[in-house]
């Protein structure tokens, strides 16, 4: 994100990451993601499988939810900053879901010559259900 770089000096523990809201998810996106990622579990692409599994149709890939969460993080810290990114999957996504990614800085420290922050992140759907709970460590540039 050239032009609005986040500097270590400007971030403090307790700061919130800017909220990131996705476009509504779509069945076609699950098909495109299946091909791109190589995860061809039919639960994500074949309606009958999703119905049989009790979801009423296809569900989104957990790793797509993680990818969307990652977009929220890299939109803020940039594309070179991530040192660690980990999530737990809490609930499935459905077509038309809109995911909101939120985060807060929990730690600020210098380690191995790098200026790092730890961020707690959550992704939730439009019903306020947590889809993902996770955390990231980013090394930020210094002024």
């Amino acid at each position: 994100m050239a032009g609005r770089e986040v500097f270590f000096e400007d971030v403090n523990v307790g700061d919130n990451m800017p909220e990131f809201v996705t476009d509504p998810l779509a069945e076609l996106q699950f098909v495109v993601y299946a091909g791109a990622s190589g995860d061809f579990n039919p639960l994500h692409t074949v309606h009958a499988y999703g119905e049989k599994a009790g979801f009423g149709g296809v569900i989104g890939h957990g790793m797509l939810s993680m990818a969307l969460t990652g977009r929220g993080v890299t939109n803020w810290v940039g594309h070179k900053a991530l040192k660690k990114f980990g999530v737990n999957f809490r609930s499935v996504t459905l077509p038309k879901d809109v995911i909101t990614v939120k985060g807060a800085v929990t730690k600020k420290y210098s380690e191995g010559g790098e200026n790092c922050i730890d961020i707690d992140v959550i992704a939730e759907n439009q019903r306020g259900e947590k889809v993902i709970v996770g955390n990231a460590t980013a090394a930020l540039p210094s002024k």
Partner: peptide, 17 residues
Amino acid sequence: KDEGFEGLALPPTFPTV
């Protein structure tokens, strides 16, 4: 390259591929 990468950057979850 303008952002300091040697080639195209990878999205953080690309390693799932």
